[in-house]
């Protein structure tokens, strides 16, 4: 255990915690987390993980910051307009915590590159805004047995679950992307900005718990909340033996990119 005096102070409130302690902080500092999508969910997640001292944070996003993002994507600021999101985020992380090694991928994640990118990380956070990518992340993580946190938000609602090898995956619950007409059209879509903050920080918390090895992850259950009434519920489920990707006789054996229009919600 080799903390500098500055680190001892910086992380003292972690170290004080009985369940974290120096050992837990060391685990965090040795951890590698990949955030896919540096938008509404990725922003708060990246901030908290950086603050916590996660050793390596990977950021992947192909977009640039535009004005509509700033209502909720809090890692980006007005001077960042037209800057690549990953660069913008990297700058903030480095200012917040120089201990963190930030690796950026300024591109879209696809069936071609996903395995190569996620394989070196301990944990993946899905902060994407469209169903095809969410299923792609799920399938890739199941294929190479990589734990990840799924998250989704819309209007005043959010949902999240955590996959770890051997437990239910996203496809166990949702067989595949919804039909096109079931996806909200752009005019129907909207999001209260702070909802992204609530969900992204839950995802960051799952990543930290996983790195430290404490508590119960959101495995085999989905946390669903409705912020209008402020109701939080968890729905339990089990691994589906007939799941096309993680079931006993899987039918999906390779990764594909599914086409789907998406509104830029996150």
């Amino acid at each position: 255990m080799d903390f500098s005096e500055e680190q001892i102070e910086r992380y003292s409130r972690h170290i004080i915690l009985a369940d974290v302690g120096p050992e837990g902080q060391e685990a965090i500092m040795n951890g590698k987390v990949l955030i896919i999508g540096v938008g509404g969910l990725g922003s708060p997640a990246a901030f908290y993980l950086a603050a916590a001292g996660v050793g390596t944070i990977g950021l992947i996003d192909g977009d640039i910051v535009d004005l509509t993002n700033l209502q909720r994507q809090i890692i980006h600021t007005t001077p960042d307009l037209n800057k690549a999101k990953v660069i913008s985020a990297k700058e903030k992380i480095e200012k917040l915590n120089p201990d963190v090694n930030t690796i950026v991928y300024q591109k879209l994640i696809t069936s071609e590159n996903i395995i190569e990118i996620i394989k070196d990380y301990d944990f993946v956070i899905d902060g994407t805004d469209n169903f095809p990518t969410k299923f792609l992340i799920n399938d890739a993580c199941v294929f190479i047995q990589k734990p990840f946190s799924h998250g989704g938000i819309l209007r005043f609602d959010g949902q999240t679950m955590t996959y770890t090898p051997g437990n239910a995956c996203y496809r166990c619950v949702f067989n595949g992307p919804p039909p096109k007409d079931a996806v909200p059209s752009c005019s129907q879509a909207g999001i209260l900005g702070s909802i992204a903050g609530i969900l992204g920080t839950i995802q960051a918390t799952e990543a930290l718990k996983y790195l430290i090895g404490i508590g119960d992850l959101l495995t085999n259950r989905m946390l669903i909340f409705d912020a209008l009434n402020m109701n939080f519920n968890t729905v339990k489920f089990k691994r589906n033996m007939d799941c096309p990707v993680c079931g006993d006789k899987p039918t999906i054996k390779e990764l594909i990119d599914e086409e789907q229009a998406a509104c830029d919600l996150n």
Binding site: I8, I15, I16
Partner: peptide, 14 residues
Amino acid sequence: CPMNFVKTKIDLAT
């Protein structure tokens, strides 16, 4: 406090 406790914990961890 609490840095003395933090440091004690780090010592114990070693």
